[in-house]
Amino acid sequence: MPSQTPPQTRIDRCFAALKREGRPAFVTFVTAGDPDYETSKAILLGLPEAGADVIEIGMPFSDPMADGPAVQASSLRALQAGQTMKRTLQLVREFRAKDNLTPIILMGYYNPIYVYPSAAFLDEARDSGVDGMIVVDVPPEADEELCLPAMERGLSFIRLATPTTDDKRLPAVLANTSGFVYYVSITGITGAAAPVVSDVRAQVARIKRSTPLPVVVGFGVRTPEQAKTLADCADGVVVGSALVEAIRTTLGPDGKAGPDTISSVHRIVQNLAAGLRGAASRV
């Protein structure tokens, strides 16, 4: 695409490359330090090869109010294993040392950032190789607290748009968003009811009329078929609860990582990635 200026960030480069390939982005979510630091690192390092295009890393929080039981449990496992914000940034640094291409988005809640405090968190996140962040409980009305300082440091602040984001509110939601827009396909918590495809198609089309940014769809996506159908209406899909559920179901009786914990997450990612590419399962 010779007429366009070269994309600046890993996120922009990633979506531009996917567009050239003509396929949707597969965005995966796992929680940092779930079920422990080393297992979490091995899961993350294997995600790109398994088919993840973008990686969202959850910053564990004691009170994840927008998350369903699967992500809540995942957050608690990580905290019980000693995960902290410092170790989450360390995890990103260790990932970056081995993979300098895959975009990394930190996702979570404001309080652990606020007490870090925010400025130091943003500096260290940038220096660790983080590309963007999603902070669920900081709305555009509070942009000067976190979003604008993040942008000043070259970090993308990715906004959630939801079924309740009406036309009147959409411009405010999009105003300082960069990287991509995350469309929350249901009113509800992560991992809840399956979205209605026709509604999602109409809503994504509405958002795309107002922004040139890619739009990805998440909340409630579990199966390869569902991922493929939703990806047809958007620029990508996010899968999270299904992955952290795979971690939970493979834990040993002591609650620690089992022999299949890492491989089972990667296997699900491979299946979903294959579904998204419209091909038969490789496994």
């Binding site: 109010m65 927008a66 404001y110 669920v136 409980d137 900081v138 709305p139 009305e141 509070a142 906004r159 959630l160 748009a161 939801t162 079924p163 309740t164 984001t165 009406d166 509110r169 939601v173 929350v184 009113t187 509800g188």
Partner: peptide, 20 residues
């Protein structure tokens, strides 16, 4: 106007709830 008492208060909620 934004719901703050000095530093405190505000509207720190998920986007789904903001319009409400």
């Amino acid at each position: 106007d934004h719901g703050f008492f000095g530093l405190y208060g505000g509207r720190f909620v998920a986007e789904t709830l903001m319009p409400l």
